[in-house]
Simulated assay, not measured.
Amino acid sequence: MISISQWIFVIVYCKLLVHGAHNTYSEENGKLIFAHVLFRHGDRTPIDPYPNDPWGNKSFWPVGWGQLTNTDVVRLGKQQHFALGKWLRNRYLELISDKYSKDNVFIRSTDVDRTLMSAEADLAGLFPPNRDQTWNENIPWQPIPVHTMPEYLDELLAAKKSCPAYDYALKKYKKSEEFVNLNKRFQWLYDYLTLNSGRKIDSPTSVNNLYNVLFIEDVYNKTLPDWTRKVYPGGDMQWLAARSFATNTYTPKLARLKVGFLIKEIFQRFTNKSESLTNPKQSLWIYSAHDTTVANLLNALGLFELHLPPYTACVLLELRMKEVPMIQIFYKNTTNEPHALYIPNCGISCPLEKLYKIYKDIIPGDFEDECRLSILAMTYEDAEINASMDSK
């Protein structure tokens, strides 16, 4: 019998196939010369149990809050990424050698335990030691560098470096008629969840945070309270939890300031590589991050169908050389093979030059300049909003 979570994956998979094609990465689309890989971490414990949570004591869990899981009869957080690393090795045999070299691959992670550990587990599958790289016959593993930086300084991957212009744009969106009406529509759900969880629930994001706790507890066969049966696992709560992933990049400006700097770096690296195979010298660039990062990237590119990105969800952005540099984007959201995504106004294989034109509105300039909050701009934007509301 198919479980609810399996049905979710099937539905999402079928929806995405409408816009893409399965396994469309043959030589007819050009020679593969470079790939960016961005993935979500593996299975973890809840980050922040709710006040009335019967499973809210650490003694019920194998590791601390928000940590990558080890070995369990239900899920294997580390094993998931070890398996993904082996899969990536098979997919990118033509880009990397059978031995690890800093000249082949670069790995960056957000500065969070579960993403750092996921990257390390992934690399264990991607580059098992062989020949002269075996340093201990009893340990079939080798240390490989994973680069990171404190979240409060990271505008690229964690996207948590202070950006006043983004904070203002997000607050403005949350005051928009569309978002206000969304909250009104689900006020009954907010009230119900607040009453039963003991935590104030008043937005799609707070719904998702609670849904995520229930999902993990369900996965680990923890008996959920009776009150959850009215709202979990399907229905409005699930939809609103999925909708939360679109909030942070809902408008072009939000997308530009939240994930535009990452997209800009990816595109620039594609350009550099297409002009010179030695710049960068690596052929595979890996980012270890979160479900929000996966969703932000896909949504900014116009490729996100509402869903909850699962553990090890993986976005593959590949550069192929034909007459001109061509880009393909794939999404691997389960253990199945990835499927090509249809790039808006271009197709499943898009010239890099056209990609810049399609996404010009979300490719930012200098971080400090873009994130500076101008009082004059605030006044002008607020006047536009008021004029728009008065005309209705």
Rank of each mutant, 00 (worst) to 15 (best):
R44Q: 05
D361P: 02
A313D: 12
Y250C: 05
F127D: 06
T223N: 03
S97C: 02
Q80M: 04
T335V: 08
K15A: 06
G234T: 15
K392L: 15
L240I: 13
T247N: 02
Y25Q: 06
Y92T: 14
K102R: 08
L240A: 05
D382C: 10
E28V: 10
T148D: 01
P164S: 04
C314D: 12
N130Y: 01
M321N: 02
P204V: 12
Y166H: 10
R89M: 01
S244D: 08
K281Y: 12
F106Q: 10
I47R: 05
Y13H: 08
Q80A: 02
V12H: 08
S197M: 01
Y92A: 07
L254T: 00
L297A: 09
H290F: 04
L373P: 11
Y192S: 07
G302W: 14
K160I: 11
Y152V: 12
W285S: 14
T194V: 04
E318V: 15
E151H: 11
A119E: 03
H19W: 01
L84A: 03
I33E: 03
F261I: 13
N299T: 03
F60N: 04
D167H: 04
W227G: 06
S118G: 06
L303D: 00
V324W: 04
A377F: 14
F106D: 08
M149I: 09
F186K: 07
L38H: 13
A255E: 10
D202R: 07
N212S: 12
W135I: 11
N248C: 09
L317Y: 06
Y173F: 12
N345R: 10
I348K: 08
S3F: 00
Y92D: 12
L16C: 05
L116R: 07
E381S: 07
I358V: 15
L153M: 12
K354Q: 13
K172T: 08
T148Q: 06
S5K: 00
N208S: 08
L257P: 02
L189R: 11
